[in-house]
Design a protein around this nucleic acid. Structure first.
Length: 403
RNA sequence: GCGCAGGUGACAGAGUGGUCAAUUGUACCUGACUGUAAAUCAGGCGCCCUAGCGGCUACGUAGGUUCAAAUCCUACCCUGCGCA
């Protein structure tokens, strides 16, 4: 893997570059489309590519459970199995430590607005009895399969071994994503664990990456604390095993919306400039501008596809709920001026009809549009950096989008 | 014409004297969703308002019994099935 910075944002952390992987180059900043179970939900790989996507992200935990990493390997690896021949990444399962663990059944998600202070846990209470499908130990995490209830113990070594079997170009260290509602003491313990796991992930990767075709990204955690975020960025970027460190970095964690920018800035001020940074699980258009400005090169997020399937569509004037009564007979495209397959061929009224009729094509057309919208938004931001008019483009876009 | 069954909110369909403005599903209206437990979930859905365990009108129509009726009685109208 090779990363080249082409142009920087004056006086800012942001930059545009090219990331070369074993399956082709990614022009950064880039939006990585999420295909958890080796499929971008409701889309064929051709549709994903035609929407402008350069790279997809699959998930270790989900593919380990089904069909199994050995099965994926037998099918020729991730790329061949899913017929995606461009760059691919896999997440380590670290997010499932959070989503199936502390966040399980609690309505806590990747980004939340802390408007209710009672959400913040002042003293960590023992809620070991609370139902959860992931339990964190020092050595690894015990998962109870949501598919069949079977128990699986995932360690950093196991996550890396699975990821090597899956065969993505860029893989992630196994980490513990924490909730912003955790107290400092817990954040600190979890951070130490994530660092220890990062080292073990790196060591396991060195053993397996004999042909040097796979890149490993270490993940920075630290919650909402500047001290912890900076410490984590330092520890992860300095980490070496046998003289080799991480090829790039992930910035993880569940954020309070208002904390996201500061966290990203703190981290990217510390991370080495010459390596790529991936802001995990983000985001919304506003978040993308923020992240890029603060030095993020890669993003991934389920929103384009999940919102699409649920009937929310991105437009240059903000998101719309296509099932709202006002679109029933709206013959215009989803977004004026959009050149995606959906907008070129179908009306809002038709897409609304498909949703009301619960037709499968609804989710497909909506996802095509949303993926195209977000992927191309990042491409346009990249262009604006290269053209030296990032600020102008940002202002212009957000002015329309926020109305 | 006779016999039987039945007429409940947009639809389907519960309820068979009080706790029923009426279970439930669908439809409809609105909202949520950020390294996917998600083609999912939540709220609303008679009318009025000072929005309250408030007022009013409601279970085919019209009467009646009762402290109290969607629920019981009478008549009428209508629907389905069967027999003529």
């Amino acid at each position: 893997m090779k990363f080249t910075i082409q142009k920087k944002l004056a006086g800012k952390l942001g930059r545009a570059g090219i990331l070369e992987t074993s399956h082709g180059a990614i022009e950064t900043p880039a939006f990585v489309v999420v295909g958890t179970k080796a499929t971008v939900k409701s889309l064929t790989p051709e549709a994903v590519r035609d929407a402008g996507a350069q790279v997809v992200l699959a998930n270790t935990y989900h593919l380990y459970l089904q069909p199994g990493d050995e099965a994926v390997k037998k099918m020729g690896g991730l790329h061949r199995m899913m017929n995606w021949h461009g760059p691919a990444m896999t997440d380590s399962g670290g997010f499932q430590v959070f989503s199936l663990g502390a966040a399980y059944g609690k309505g806590i998600s990747k980004v939340l607005a802390i408007t209710d202070p009672s959400l913040l846990i002042p003293e960590r209470f023992d809620d070991a009895a609370a139902p959860r499908l992931a339990k964190v130990g020092e050595d690894g995490v015990s998962f109870t399969s949501h598919l069949d209830g079977s128990v699986h113990y995932i360690t950093p070594e196991k996550s890396i071994a699975i990821q090597h079997n899956l065969g993505a170009d860029i893989i992630f260290a196994f980490d513990e994503c924490t909730a912003p509602t955790e107290d400092i003491k817990y954040q600190e313990e979890a951070l130490e664990r994530t660092h220890a796991w990062a080292r073990r992930s790196l060591a396991e990767h060195q053993k397996r990456n004999t042909e040097n075709t796979v890149a490993l990204f270490g993940i920075v955690q630290g919650g909402r604390e500047e001290r912890l975020r900076k410490k984590s960025a330092k520890v992860i970027s300095d980490m070496e095993v046998d003289g080799a460190g991480f090829d790039g970095f992930g910035i993880g964690g569940s954020f309070a919306k208002e904390d996201m920018e500061s966290a990203v800035k703190w981290v990217n001020e510390v991370l080495p400039e010459e390596k790529p940074r991936h802001l995990l699980g983000i985001g919304e258009p506003e978040d993308l501008f923020m992240g890029i400005e603060q030095g993020v090169d890669l993003f991934d997020c389920v929103l384009p596809t999940r919102l699409g399937r649920n009937g929310t569509l991105y437009t240059s004037r903000g998101k719309i709920h296509i099932e709202n009564a006002q679109y029933r007979l709206d013959l215009g495209p989803i977004d004026d001026g959009c050149v995606c397959y959906t907008c070129k061929n179908y009306s809002r009224a038709y897409v609304a009809h498909l949703f009301r009729g619960k037709e499968m094509l609804a989710g497909t057309l909506a996802s095509v549009h949303n993926v195209h919208f977000i992927v191309n938004l990042v491409k346009k931001i990249r262009r604006s950096i290269l053209d030296g008019n990032f600020e102008k483009y940002k202002k212009e876009f957000l002015k329309n989008y926020a109305q």
